[in-house]
């Protein structure tokens, strides 16, 4: 939602400036407005049915004492008990903590690695296209498939990682997914492997937009490569990096499929993300009220993060005209 706003805002403004006058006065304009609404209404219908209604319904559910029977839902009156139970439950706190740490670590690593890859790719004169294609393979894999692949790699009995461990140390390989910290790191590693190329491509796009003369000017000014990177490249990449971080944080905070397949949230509930917690509460425990409360709370957290982020980056995104 937030990204859509970010992209469409300038266009909307320019359309408003270019419009001939207030809509509805001129019969021609009114006619076009009617046709426009006519064409848009199927889309509105779909959005209302599949986006707006579920959101409202989830919010309503989260404030209801829900009774599920064989004949369907029974909403048995307003209650804040769902939220109260959630906020006092250790599971929710742990899931929030896990999701946050996971998001911060993976996004930070992906950003650093992605930027390094982008810098290398930018320097490549030969085979850049092929390298990009190779780099994008992990990103193009469906998460569930890559999660399955990693579960083979991590498997202590027949996994390749265990075999390498065995050859090097001679000891029997550890069960990586059997301990909370190891499992968390294993998950993060799989995520970083998969998503770093995405960040690299975005940063590369920003990098090629910076005119070469700026780097030459910095060189003539006496800057070393390191100084040029920190004083010229990074500041000019900030808007691009901002976009990459926004996308990644949104995605990482909704973490579901990777732990669902790779660890099942385990061992125990140690790698259970907020999205998994919501899903499990709702569909495994058939506990719709509390499950909806988890979902709504996650959505609110993400929304707030986006707003804070946009506010912080609005000063820069789109304002730094790079053309000198």
């Amino acid at each position: 939602m937030a990204t859509a706003e970010l992209v469409h805002e300038p266009r909307a403004r320019s359309m408003a400036e270019g419009s001939p006058g207030p809509i509805g006065r001129d019969p021609n304009t009114r006619h076009f407005a009617r046709v426009g609404w006519g064409f848009s209404s199927p889309a509105f219908g779909v959005i209302a049915a599949f986006t707006i209604f579920p959101i409202i319904f989830a919010v309503v559910l989260s404030f209801q004492n829900v009774n599920v029977t064989g004949s369907g839902f029974g909403l048995q009156g307003f209650t804040t008990a769902n939220y109260h139970a959630m906020l006092t439950a250790g599971l929710w706190h742990h899931a929030l903590w896990f999701t946050t740490i996971y998001t911060v670590v993976t996004v930070a690593c992906e950003l650093v690695l992605g930027t390094v890859f982008a810098l290398v790719l930018e320097r490549l004169t030969k085979g850049r296209g092929m390298m990009m294609a190779l780099l994008l393979i992990p990103w193009s894999l469906i998460t569930v498939i890559s999660a399955e692949l990693w579960s083979y790699i991590y498997n202590p009995t027949y996994g390749v990682l265990g075999e390498i461990w065995h050859v090097i140390t001679g000891a029997s390989p550890p069960n990586l997914l059997g301990y909370p910290l190891d499992a968390t790191i294993a998950l993060m590693f799989a995520d970083i492997w998969k998503t770093t190329p995405f960040v690299a491509i975005i940063v590369l796009a920003g990098l090629v937009m910076i005119p070469t003369e700026l780097f030459e000017a910095a060189e003539v000014d006496g800057a070393t490569g390191w100084k040029t990177f920190w004083k010229v490249t990074v500041p000019l990449l900030r808007p691009t990096i901002g976009i990459a971080v926004l996308f990644r944080v949104l995605q990482a905070f909704g973490l579901f499929d990777l732990p669902y397949v790779l660890t099942g949230g385990g061992p125990g509930t140690s790698t259970q993300s907020l999205a998994m917690l919501g899903y499990n509460t709702m569909f495994t425990d058939i506990n719709f009220g509390p499950g909806a409360a988890v979902a709504v709370s996650t959505a609110v957290i993400v929304l707030v993060m986006c707003l804070v982020f946009l506010r912080a980056f609005k000063q820069q995104v789109g304002k730094e005209t790079i053309s000198a």
């Binding site: 005119p211 700026l214 000017a217 003539v220 004083k231 010229v232 500041p235 000019l236 005209t321 000198a324």
Partner: peptide
């Protein structure tokens, strides 16, 4: 010191 055709000023 060099003056570039399109000035190459640091925009930030």
């Amino acid at each position: 010191a060099m003056v570039f055709q399109n000035y190459a000023l640091y925009p930030h």
